[in-house]
């Protein structure tokens, strides 16, 4: 459409970075929980969806301004994540791992159908959250490419969140406790650390990041519906696996990689745009076959 190849590339570069960052935010939640409990929290994508609904209703019912709505979403999702762990996963800590996985699948469908029942199955427009839509429509010109201001904002906020996340994980006491229990739960509990609290905090932190990602997601793709968390959730999990599950930098790399592949594959091979959602799975399968431990994951040697 009159774009030079350079601007076309630039346009997609920004889109890819944004999408990848959003995947990465969700992926971090998967990777932290998996690192500690060896559990794929299937419901993680649905927590993101719930977060978006929280923001939506905060804005439309109590007329919260967008920033407050986002904070409500993040806090609500964090609480929800904590609650889900307490109610559904904690009783199964000593059960076979597959039981917890099955429960997580059940939890995912529970949240989806809960959203259908309470919020309705009909998609809602997230743009209703904003009374003042000028910020949404602002476009910047970068090297000839028209980049929405929102894309910049999303990328910046995502980067900021990651800085805070690294600070929490690597510089605070609770972060140290999280890293410790991902190595060895029994020993950590002997050190006088309340393991359940730390696990609960991990769930809350991961859910908060997912909600943050969800709110930004909904600003760019404003369709809000109960199953909206499924695909981003799946892809984010794949991102976590691709990057090396258990590793936070890995999740970020995996998320960005997935975002780039998805955007650029569709951009340069428009015929395959219908298969957009299939790319992630194909990448997953390839990665798992070549390097099952992921890009930054450590190879686990099975002890016999």
């Amino acid at each position: 459409m009159g774009y030079s190849p350079g601007t076309f590339f630039l346009q997609n570069l920004f889109n890819a970075t944004m999408l990848g960052g959003l995947y990465a935010l969700i992926a971090v939640g998967y990777t932290m929980v998996y690192g500690i409990l060896r559990l794929i929290n299937f419901a993680h994508g649905d927590i993101m969806m719930m977060g978006v609904y929280f923001a939506f209703y905060a804005a439309t019912i109590i007329y919260a301004p967008p920033l407050l709505a986002a904070i409500i979403a993040i806090a609500g999702a964090a609480g929800l994540g904590f609650l889900i762990d307490r109610v559904a996963y904690k009783p199964l800590r000593n059960a076979p791992r597959i039981s917890a996985l099955i429960t997580a699948i059940g939890m995912s469908f529970f949240l989806e159908s809960f959203a259908v029942v309470v919020f309705g199955a009909i998609p809602k427009s997230f743009l209703d959250v904003f009374k003042d839509k000028t910020i949404l429509n602002k476009v910047l010109l970068v090297g000839g490419a028209r980049i929405p201001l929102l894309t910049f904002l999303v990328i910046l906020i995502t980067a900021g969140i990651f800085v805070v996340l690294f600070w929490i994980v690597y510089k605070t006491k609770i972060g140290m406790a999280m890293r410790a229990i991902s190595m060895d739960i029994p020993t950590t509990s002997l050190m006088g650390i309340n393991v359940d609290m730390v696990i609960g905090f991990t769930f809350a932190l991961g859910s908060a990041l997912a909600a943050a990602s969800g709110v930004m997601w909904a600003m760019r793709f404003p369709n809000v519906y109960p199953y909206m968390g499924f695909m981003p959730g799946m892809k984010a999990f794949i991102a976590a696996v691709v990057g090396g599950i258990g590793s936070i930098p890995g999740a970020i790399i995996g998320g960005l990689l997935l975002g780039f592949i998805e955007i650029f594959a569709v951009a340069y091979f428009p015929n395959f745009s219908g298969y957009r959602d299939a790319f992630a799975f194909i990448i997953l399968i390839i990665i798992l076959l070549i390097k099952p431990s992921g890009i930054l994951g450590k190879k686990a040697i099975e002890k016999v």
Binding site: R38, I40, R97, L101, M234, F237, I238, V241, A280, F281, L284, I285, L288, P292
Partner: peptide, 9 residues
């Protein structure tokens, strides 16, 4: 778990 996700995929 990897098998579960890959088969779902």
């Amino acid at each position: 778990d990897y098998l579960a996700i890959a088969s779902l995929g």
